[in-house]
């Protein structure tokens, strides 16, 4: 288990700038997720850390040891890939044994370690099966066991759940976290799935166009996005027209402070306030805010999602506890306001 540090990493593919001045620290034993849309550079960062590609500039350290130029085979990493990567000519057990045999571990030690990991990952009964005889979930679990059995300094997970169906994905996601905590392995998890990242990570890094926009606790990334880009990417977000006046903005008829993290041009133009659905308030009476008509009420269990067409033409979504949402129905007129004192403003 190691502390991993990447500093000022730059990488281009032809004219495409894949990574821009990326600096990232993964504390020993923690799990960090890199989250972002396709092409944001998250997989490139992971592959540079694995040594599968080299950075144009910048350095990578494992426990203060510079491994920037160390080949992948000597980095002592475990990796699980998005594509099924088990060796087709080997059984599940032989796949798990591979890394230990390459390291010339004693046969009795290999047997003990492999038995242990197969038990922990629930693969003992499938150990003699070949990859084509295993389900997608079992294959990825075997790949996880194969990566962990060598006790790597860092575990790299490159969207390992994306090819699985929803139920298996949830199970394996929880299993990855359980095993990671049990072994205390420093882990980098790359995904485009917000729920995955939020659920199992100690910290979440949001990437956009090759840059790390924010690295923070999952809760903080959601509640206090560093900038409008992060705010738009994480969770649902209403974009409501705002009139900027000095350090405040008028949104839905309310004067609200503009958050310091806002990014907007000072020139006169169209601005938007970014407001999460749970911070929109609906009032059936003549209260504060702008008037609109409910177009849809969707029951989601503990919460309900209410779609409102404001009379100004903007469409917004509010999320309310289902018990509270009972009083609203389609075609009903309501007033919509914001339950915040400051808002993020963007162009």
């Amino acid at each position: 288990m190691s502390k991993v540090v990447m500093t000022n990493i730059e990488k281009s593919f032809g004219r495409t700038h894949a990574l821009r001045d990326l600096s990232l620290t993964i504390p020993e034993g923690s799990l960090i997720s890199l989250l972002g849309p396709s092409g944001c550079g998250k997989t490139t960062a992971l592959r540079i850390l694995a040594g599968l590609i080299s950075a144009d500039s910048g350095q990578t350290f494992f426990d203060s040891i510079d491994i920037t130029n160390t080949p992948a085979a000597s980095r002592d990493i475990g990796m699980v890939f998005q594509a099924y990567s088990l060796f087709p000519n080997m059984s599940a057990r032989q796949n798990v044994e591979f890394g230990l045999k390459v390291r010339k571990v004693a046969p009795n030690e290999i047997k003990r370690k492999v038995d242990d990991i197969l038990e922990i990952t629930g693969l003992a009964i499938h150990q003699e099966k070949y990859p084509h005889q295993l389900s997608g979930g079992q294959q990825q679990r075997t790949a996880l066991a194969r990566a962990i059995v060598i006790r790597p300094r860092i575990l790299l997970l490159d969207e390992p759940l994306s090819a699985l169906d929803a139920q298996v994905r949830d199970q394996l996601r929880d299993e990855i976290r359980r095993v990671q905590l049990e072994f205390g392995i420093t882990t980098l998890f790359v995904t485009h799935d917000q729920e995955e990242a939020m659920t199992i990570s100690d910290q979440v890094g949001v990437m956009h166009q090759g840059s790390l926009m924010q690295l923070d606790l999952p809760q903080r990334v959601y509640d206090n996005p560093e900038n409008p880009t992060v705010a738009r990417f994480i969770g649902a977000m209403n974009e409501i027209p705002a009139v900027v006046a000095g350090s405040s903005a008028i949104v839905l008829g309310q004067r609200l402070e503009i958050s310091q993290k806002s990014e907007y041009s000072r020139a006169v133009g169209q601005h938007f306030a970014l407001v999460r659905p749970e911070f929109l308030l609906l009032d059936a009476e003549n209260g504060e805010g702008e008037e609109g008509t409910i177009s849809q009420v969707a029951f989601l269990g503990p919460t309900s999602r209410i779609h409102v067409a404001l009379h100004s033409g903007t469409k917004v979504i509010a999320v309310l506890p289902s018990a509270q949402a009972l009083q609203f129905s389609p075609q009903q007129r309501v007033r919509v306001s914001i339950g915040l004192s400051s808002v993020l403003v963007s162009d």
């Binding site: 694995a50 599968l52 080949p71 992948a72 085979a73 000597s74 980095r75 002592d76 990493i77 475990g78 990796m79 890939f81 594509a83 099924y84 990567s85 088990l86 060796f87 087709p88 591979f98 890394g99 390459v102 390291r103 790949a143 194969r146 990566a147 060598i150 790299l156």
Partner: peptide, 19 residues
Amino acid sequence: IDVKTLFEASTSLGANFFT
């Protein structure tokens, strides 16, 4: 076969090119 992924998987486990 997915040569690239198999190659990268085995390399990440410490195998050299000939192995």
